[in-house]
Design a protein around this nucleic acid. Structure first.
Length: 725
DNA sequence: AATATCTTGCAGTCG
DNA sequence: GCAAGATATT
């Protein structure tokens, strides 16, 4: 057999990894050192040379993108379809296991996935139902707490709450939340992983079956595994499985969602015979860019230690631009992109990276103004759009009548005379009798509904049953089409004359397309197949789709630094290099947070192949308020000889701003005086009060005043005629 | 009960 | 600057 395509394109270190004996291997692979290639070639090596059946190989990644890429490349190399391999994300694989073994995992067969929006909604309701103050028990924090505990593998019973009232209450909410999910057959993201792990622990026979099957476990981005994922893999590997783990401690950027870099060290302890191989030769970037990256990451203390090198060219300096504000920054970036394109390059080769999603807006506006096509990754994804979730809620009810979240979402959408009052009666009767909203509704909440409300509810129930019957024989695309048409959703959005109504209708139509072309999972594995609708719904929750269509058009790529991991671009911009934004201020509270931000910066820099631009703005509008920040410390951690500063052109219209760093007063029209925060003022009608807040400037300036008798009001300065006191 | 308008909180990153 | 939720209006 000809193995040259498998081993020829590899350097020595890569080859050592790919051809290693069937023993545990840890590959520490720097950015751009060919780690995906190593994984792909290892799989090919196992199959072609070692004679391992694809059936016995499990490959795990974190993102759908990475999984898709791995599939594609293995197929290309082996020239055979990879349907026999299990290749997927942790969540995807966990989901597949749970579907197969729903009963053993203690789940109803029609269980649905709860995405984080739905999860938050549910928690909000629970906090309210428990009559807790949602400012002390902010649903977001509760969500954070629950997910954090689940990521560590802890159920409410495992959590020690002695001497900690706050924690005790959090655990109480966690309990109620979990009961709710169990009753409704809902599984959140963290739960998928935890249940999959518990499936091993509680069912030795099932575990044994998979242990015997998967003798080879390949794991990408090992530094991003959390405790549960690690335990899941560890148990699956057992004494007989061989683990092939690839990771880079310097690219560990998901600690906030439970990832533990330490898992890389733990591996070496658990498998004393583990072979460790370092990949340090970079094939992606110029040496200037690599120097910058090495120099940044050297400021971190906790590292396995590794230094990237290349035998390529120096390339251009890294350009640093100091903008006045975020618009100026965007203008600069877009102008550079225009030059790039005029030089005959593709737009798709350029990427604008930023720390937080909110930063994309200004770049989008500027690109739009210059009519440059672009594509935003992340942000609000297709399956997360409100109208899509509405449609999915109908579909979910068809699958699982007990899905309360979906029930509530569509019971009165489009409006059919079932108001808040009616729903709350149904809800109370349901919780008093430990039944689903659906069941409660079928009994007209135990007869507590008025005749009119009961009639409306009855019509809703009949509608769902009717939809279910009518679609029983249809295929997936037709089901979706039928449901959005006959549920009244499409009609509802059609007659809505809001500006977004049209795109909503288009999105619903797009959903039908998505369903039609949906391929029930590329890994059409042997035995039990999932019903298409269930499979499609899971796909919607797990993959969420992309922000916009038109993948194939040549367009500028916009994304967060996080979602850029694993990608590369000839031209890269990193915007918002400001203290407080990057490193983000909320990362500074916890130890290790800063180092993680620095690794994120390292990830960003190493995305660039040829040209890298960094920029920061002196002034940036956030939450509608101007902010001023220092240049990010990361800029000063770069070697000076790599950097070339670009001064703004004089012609740039410097925004009229009034000098002060922390501006806290505005000028009252024609009056010579300033209104400051805390200033006492008198109003002709409302009397005396104190200025709490203000916004805008000039004729549009408004102030918020707390009046002693009239309460707080927003007033337009130019009309209010405030008298300063 | 349905719709229009105002207020509030937000934006840290993913599956 | 936007979206969700709260409040006001019909």
């Amino acid at each position: 057999m000809d193995v040259t395509p498998i081993i020829d394109p590899l350097n020595d270190a890569q080859r050592e990894a790919v051809t290693a004996p069937q023993e545990p291997v840890l590959v520490v692979a720097g950015a751009g050192s060919g780690k995906t290639r190593v994984l792909v070639h290892r799989m090919a090596w196992l199959v072609e040379v070692e004679g391992v059946s694809p059936h016995g190989i499990l490959a795990v990644t974190f993102t759908n993108k990475a999984a898709a890429e791995m599939r594609g490349r293995v197929e290309e190399l082996l020239k055979m379809p990879v349907s026999n391999f299990w290749v997927g994300t942790f969540h995807g694989l966990a989901h597949r296991l749970l579907r197969r073994h729903a009963e053993a995992a203690g789940l109803p067969p029609g269980f649905q996935i709860l995405d984080s929006q739905d999860q938050l909604r549910l928690i909000k309701r629970i906090v309210r139902d428990m009559e807790l103050d949602d400012s002390t028990w902010s649903p977001k924090e509760v969500q954070w707490f629950i997910n954090g505990e689940k990521d560590e593998g802890r159920r409410p019973d495992h959590i020690d709450t002695r001497n900690d009232q706050t924690r005790a209450m959090m655990v109480r909410i966690y309990r109620v939340y979990q009961d709710m999910c169990d009753q409704n057959g809902l599984v959140d993201f963290a739960e998928l992983l935890l249940r999959a792990h518990e499936l091993w622990l509680n069912n030795p026979d099932i575990l044994d079956q998979y242990r015997r099957r998967f003798r080879h476990l390949l794991v990408d981005e090992f530094q991003d595994t959390n405790s549960v994922q690690y335990a899941w893999l560890r148990v699956l590997a057992g004494q007989t499985g061989t683990l092939f783990a690839v990771g880079d401690d310097d690219q560990s950027i998901y600690r906030w969602r439970g990832a533990r870099v330490e898992n890389m060290f733990a591996l070496k302890k658990e498998f004393p015979n583990m072979r460790e191989i370092k990949l340090e030769q970079n094939y992606r970037s110029t040496s200037t860019i690599l120097n910058a990256a090495n120099s940044i990451i050297a400021h971190n203390s906790e590292r396995l230690g590794k230094n990237l090198w290349t035998d390529g060219h120096d390339g251009d300096s890294i350009r640093l631009y100091s903008a006045y504000n975020e618009r100026d920054e965007a203008e600069f970036v877009v102008a550079r992109i225009e030059e790039w394109v005029n030089d005959g390059n593709l737009r798709a080769e350029s990427a604008v990276l930023y720390r937080s999603n909110a930063q994309s807006r200004v770049f989008e506006e500027m690109l739009l103004a210059k009519q440059i096509p672009y594509r935003v990754y992340g942000g609000l994804r297709f399956f997360e759009r409100a109208e899509i979730k509405d449609a999915l809620a109908y579909l979910r009810l068809l699958e699982n009548r007990a899905d309360d979240a979906s029930f509530e979402r569509v019971v009165n959408l489009p409006t059919r005379g079932i108001g808040a009052k009616t729903v709350s009666v149904i809800r109370e009767y349901a919780s008093a009798n430990a039944m689903s909203l659906w069941q409660s509704a079928t009994t007209a909440a135990g007869g507590q509904l008025s005749a009119r409300a009961a009639g409306a509810v009855q019509r809703f129930l009949a509608l769902i049953e009717q939809l279910d019957q009518d679609t029983a024989e249809l295929d997936l695309g037709e089901v979706v089409d039928h449901v959005i048409a006959h549920s009244g959703l499409l009609e509802h959005f059609r007659k809505d004359r809001g500006e977004q109504a049209e795109t909503r209708v288009e999105n619903l139509e797009e959903l039908v397309n998505a369903a039609q072309s949906f391929d029930p999972d590329t890994a059409a594995d042997d035995e039990d197949e999932m019903p298409p609708l269930a499979s499609f719904l899971a796909h919607a929750a797990l993959e969420a789709g992309e922000g916009q269509a038109d993948k194939w058009e040549d367009c500028v790529q916009l994304m967060t630094l996080h979602s850029a991991k694993g990608l590369e671009f000839p031209l890269v911009f990193i915007g918002g290099m400001e203290e407080g934004l990057f490193p983000h201020k909320r990362s500074l509270n916890d130890p290790g947070g800063l180092e993680e931000e620095r690794r994120l910066c390292y990830v960003g820099i190493t995305r660039a192949m040829r040209k890298l631009y960094l920029s920061h703005a002196e002034q940036r509008r956030m939450h509608g308020v101007d902010n001023y920040a220092q240049v990010s410390r990361f800029v000063s951690e770069l070697p000076a000889e790599c950097i070339e500063e670009i001064r703004p052109n004089i012609r740039v219209s410097r925004p009229a701003f009034d000098g002060g760093r922390a501006r806290n007063s505005i000028r009252v029209k024609d009056s010579g005086g300033d209104v400051r925060l805390g200033q006492r003022v008198r109003h002709g009608k409302f009397g005396e009060g104190v200025v709490l807040n203000y916004e805008g400037s000039g004729a549009h300036a408004r102030v918020q005043v707390n009046f002693e008798s009239a309460g707080t009001k927003w007033l337009v300065m130019s009309y209010a005629n405030l008298e300063l006191m």
